[in-house]
Nucleic acid binder design. Structure first.
Lengths: 220, 220, 220, 220
DNA sequence: TATGAATGAGCATTCATTCAT
DNA sequence: AATGAATGAATGCTCATTCAT
């Protein structure tokens, strides 16, 4: 049996880790396909290539399974989004272009299969797992807002955006991006063309800059 | 006992419209409480005060039941929203104030129990009933966007907003309102104070006006 | 409302009689199509073009409905069969030909839709309505055996068949006809060609005559 | 408790073949008692001493359950019948006696509980499972006819029956046995005495021999 | 640890039957 | 007499979960 060295430094049997991960992946796939209530543990076990009781051995419960699968997906989605925001660290000379670039990439991430499924699943189970929402939002939207706010704050400091509450600016920029996108994609049930996505990104950035760009220097 | 004495004092057949509506109302209540998959027809029947087969007599299917209940709720929500937008028809002298008023009222509607539940349910079942999403979005968000666009177009014509695409303006104003609100209410799992709601409304309108207000008249 | 004179001589409202008959016909059609357990009263009502409670008004019960429908069908089938046997009253010179003719016609009747359905339904419900079997058999198979026995007795008396128990002869002739036919038609699930039907009839009569024909007159 | 001590004294896994067979047996018992449509899976499960889902685990469907139960019963009945026919392989000196013996034994088998139930069930469901009829007939009546034809062919070859089509002879002999028996037992709803059964057997063989016995040897 | 097998609880749906009109 | 509406009682089937190996 192969083994890997876990972050903690202890040897851990690899088969175990692999299997747990396989189950979580399978779970997210199935939950995304059917929704929580309609998913059955048997299908998840099949997808993961293990027997049903093995799923229970590793993850106790359908509910626990759901929580872990969702959290894993949230982390993955967030990593992608943070990478996009990070690009604003070196915006170059053309601020508008940099923002549009970030906006477009972010929309692409948000329209991805996993991102959509995550949103749909958390939204759907809001009533049953309110604390899960809290966790997921904390690790995704809120965290993303903070990261973006950091960048915008720097841009204010460097005089490229006017001073003001960067959290609010970030919140609104995100809203200007995701709101229209959700509407146009009909909550993800309709394909939005690249061109239209670009339009949304450009319009969002345009409005954002009108509202938040520093007054043109040199204006009397 | 098949007839009841209505408040008006006349005998009214209990059976007909009455019961169908009661079932639809009960269905929405239960679906909102449990989600589609977790709701059982028996509970809906209980909530409506009828026997289970009566539900089937009137509405064929669990699916049909869902569709009709959702559509009815969508229409109700939309009526409220349209009434709010309609107020912009006579904005008075203070445009900002008028917009803030509308914005605040709209947020109130969107945070209402029914509105939230509607959003949650449609989102959750997006995969299973894509055409339902289309219908509901058509009757709510899109319709609302159009109505708002109408108002904004008028305001452009009368020179109070700068010229431009009113549909995009409406789309963005709505995004600036609902996006931050969803975030702060954690998709509706957390209560947002009146004060905070007002803040969101004010911030949205502020950003909107910066981007869309007509250049100050008298500027050369 | 139109009225007819019933056999008893009293005036009877026609609508009533018509409707009852329509229901019985519809019932047999549906029972034949689905079997007893799988038939639902609603489908019978639809087939008869009346409302469900009307069926109950006329026939009390699903069970009663079944019994009456079956009995009516049994009488109809029997009338056909008796007519066929009756032809033996004047057998003409060629006894073999007369028997083959009767045999073929009888097979045709027994393979008819109604006859088959009747057999299938009574057989199927033998456990649930044993007395119904008794009644139906009495009005069909047994009665047919008696009628045939009558004819055969006459043929014995006139010296064209050898003396013996005509009831047994009739019973065996019928068995030689229906047994092979049921086998070849796979209990009615397979079409039997006219030619094959003729073969069965001829073979049955041939065997029957070998066993029952009077010794050739004039043999020393 | 998952293991029982078998009569042999060894521990035997309770779960496997054991249970499947118990379910099939129980299914046939219940189907025979109530008919297909009136049988409910719960009752079968009770009869088998297992939980309802166990039935589904092993046999998928009510329909599948029916098919397998019927086929098993068909095989069992056929084995009995073939054993009876096999006795004709050594007919001894007295052909008539040998045939009568076989005939009587065959009637006993055909009047047995299982045989009757099998006939009733297949007949009843002819419309719903036509292919099942085909299978069952193939494994029972047709197979039996062939086996009997084999024996009769040998008897022809050895000069004890006159030459001719042995398949037809077999078909007719079987018809002469089962036809009258069904009639007299009222499709199995009435007990037929041993004496009467013997009479039917004797009459059938008598008629058969008249028609099929070789001409008395020594006749010029 | 992994699993084949078993099960208690539940759910959508159907149907025979009955009221009240 | 005929019917629209309503319902109590089943029934087939699924699923999360647990044993015993």
């Amino acid at each position: 049996m192969t083994a890997v060295t876990a972050p903690s430094g202890r040897k851990v049997p690899r088969g175990r880790i692999d299997k747990r991960q396989a189950i979580l992946d399978a779970a997210f796939t199935v939950f995304a396909r059917r929704g929580y209530g309609q998913s059955c543990v048997q299908e998840i076990a099949n997808e993961a290539g293990v027997a049903k009781p093995t799923v229970y051995n590793h993850l106790t419960d359908k509910e626990t399974l759901f929580r872990h699968a969702i959290e894993a997906a949230a982390d993955a989605v967030m990593a992608e989004n943070l990478a996009v925001v990070e690009r604003l660290r070196e915006p170059g000379d053309d601020l508008r272009a940099a923002l549009e670039d970030m906006a477009y990439r972010m929309l692409q991430v948000c329209c991805g299969e996993r991102s959509r499924a995550l949103r749909r699943l958390t939204y759907a189970q809001a009533a049953d797992f309110p604390d899960l929402i809290e966790t997921v939002q904390g690790r995704t939207a809120i965290r993303l807002g903070e990261a973006l706010a950091d960048r915008l704050a720097r841009l204010s400091l460097s005089g490229r955006l006017r001073p003001g509450d960067p959290a609010q600016a970030a919140e609104q920029l995100l809203a200007l991006l995701t709101g229209p996108m959700e509407m146009r994609s009909r909550l993800g049930t309709r394909k939005v063309s690249t061109a239209e996505t670009r339009t949304v990104a450009r319009a969002a950035v345009d409005t954002f800059l009108r509202a938040y760009e520093a007054a043109a220097p040199g204006r009397p």
